[in-house]
Every structure is written in C-alpha cells, then in structure tokens.
Simulated assay, not measured.
Amino acid sequence: MDSLQQAIIEHTLTCLRRAENKLGKQFPDPAIRFTQRGKIAGSARMQSWEIRYNPVLLAENPQAFLAEVVPHELAHLLTFACYGKVRPHGPEWQKMMTEVFNVPARTTHSFDISSVSGRTFLYRCQCREHQLTVRRHNKILRQQAIYHCMQCHQPLTPVTGNASQRN
C-alpha cells in the first residue's frame, strides 16, 4: 500500500469520527479497499460495510478524492446505517453530505477518465457512427442484444475492419 492510499484510509476514518460526533452515534470502521475499476471513483457496499476506491483515479486526482470522493462514499454507508435502504442519492444522502460533511451533494465526478476508458468498437446506423464498449460489442456478437440509435432508431451494425481502440 502506498502513502496516498494510506492517507485516504486515514482521511476516511477521520471523516467517520467527525460524522459520529455530529450524529451522536458510533459506527464500525468500514473495510477500505482499492479495488474499484473502470470509470467509477468509488463505491460503497452497505451490506458488507465496505468502501472501494479506484486506485488509478485516486493517483490522478488525490485532492478531489480527499475533498469529495471520501465523504461521498462514506455518506452512503452512514445514510444506510441511519435510514436503512433509501434512494442512493436521495434527500437523506444529500442531507448527510451537506449537513454532516459540509460538501456539496454532487452525484458524479468530473474526472478525466481517458486513462481508465476501455477499448471501444465502431458501429454505424443511418445517421452517424457510435463507439460501443467491449461489453456491448460482446453482447451483440453473442446475439444477446441489439442496440439502436437514439436519433434514427435504426439498429447499430459493426463497421467492417472494426479495430478496437482506446477512447
């Protein structure tokens, strides 16, 4: 584990202690892992009381993780502990973000995700070209899905000589 990951663990626990003081309740320390993949900065797993952070996006955006991602994910766990199962970014979560952590209740990050974007495959419809993810491309190949253009509503077809690329 590197020093940045250690700093995130310590900050998560510091935020948890602050939240405990504000809420007048105690909570167990969550399991903290650096196993989140893809374009997601972090995720909270309520049943296992766990937070997963994306190590690639963390390395590229350490200040934003400290300021926004840590409270965001911790707010999910605390909202679940205080209110049970509610909408993921509903009023209870928003209140936790603004009143407990004093952080704007934004639901998504605005990080550059080019380093974590996977391969894409080129498809066409009648009106334009589309970049499909590996998952969607494979579903088409396995005949498990047909995707349509949102504009012209025609089915998407692969471009011949379809070489994968990075976004």
Rank of each mutant, 00 (worst) to 15 (best):
Q26I: 09
R142L: 08
I140G: 05
N167Q: 14
Q154N: 11
V116E: 03
T133F: 01
E92K: 13
F80E: 04
Q47M: 12
Q151S: 10
R17Q: 02
L77A: 00
A163F: 01
E68L: 15
F34K: 01
R142Y: 05
Y123T: 05
R17S: 02
F101Y: 00
Q126N: 11
G38R: 06
N54W: 12
L16I: 04
Q63P: 05
M46N: 15
Q165P: 10
N167M: 13
M97N: 08
L78Y: 04
F65H: 14
T79C: 01
A7N: 06
M96N: 00
E92N: 11
R106N: 03
R106L: 05
R17A: 03
N61D: 06
M97P: 05
V86F: 13
G38Y: 05
M1H: 04
L78I: 03
S164M: 09
H137Y: 03
H148W: 07
P28D: 08
C127W: 12
V159Y: 15
G118Y: 11
T120G: 10
H153Y: 04
R128A: 12
N138P: 01
M150S: 14
T108K: 13
C82V: 01
Y53C: 11
F80W: 04
R128H: 10
P55F: 14
P28H: 09
T133Y: 04
F34H: 00
